[in-house]
């Protein structure tokens, strides 16, 4: 599914990476614990998280994840934005809870990692 479509489904606001919305992704991992994200072997995934700090972006960078959805209305700060821009990432702010956002994407056909 295209990132653009995902952002629309989630009523999300794209705050970084407008130029990359045509990228596609097949699976999603939802977690607030970055340690769990770092154990994933898969690369074709989008990260959904309610953890809004610079280490979220760092974790994505190390894990080759280039799209992050911040649920529960978490906001992206300047420092996060700068790092995400350097790494050509798409950042989306979403007003929904993690459960609701996960449900919408699951129903739309996106797959879990495990």
């Amino acid at each position: 599914m295209k990132i653009k479509q995902i952002a629309e489904l989630l009523n999300g606001k794209v705050v970084c990476g407008e130029d990359y919305l045509d990228r596609s992704v097949n699976s999603v991992f939802a977690s607030d614990l970055m340690s769990d994200v770092l154990t994933l072997k898969s690369e074709d995934l989008l990260l959904m998280t309610g953890l809004g700090n610079v280490q979220t972006i760092r974790t994505a960078e190390m894990s080759d994840i280039n799209t992050i959805i911040f649920v529960r209305n978490k906001k992206v700060n300047e420092e996060m934005l700068k790092l995400a821009e350097e790494n050509d990432m798409v950042l989306i702010e979403c007003p929904y809870s993690m459960f609701k956002a996960s449900g919408i994407l699951y129903q739309a056909g996106l797959e879990p990692i495990y």
Binding site: L33, M34, S35, D36, L38, T39, N53, Q55, T56, T59
Partner: peptide
């Protein structure tokens, strides 16, 4: 823990 770490998984993930 606030940064998303500290769950006691780091060393075993390094090993993996």
């Amino acid at each position: 823990r606030e940064m998303g770490f500290g769950a006691g998984m780091g060393l075993s993930n390094i090993k993996a």
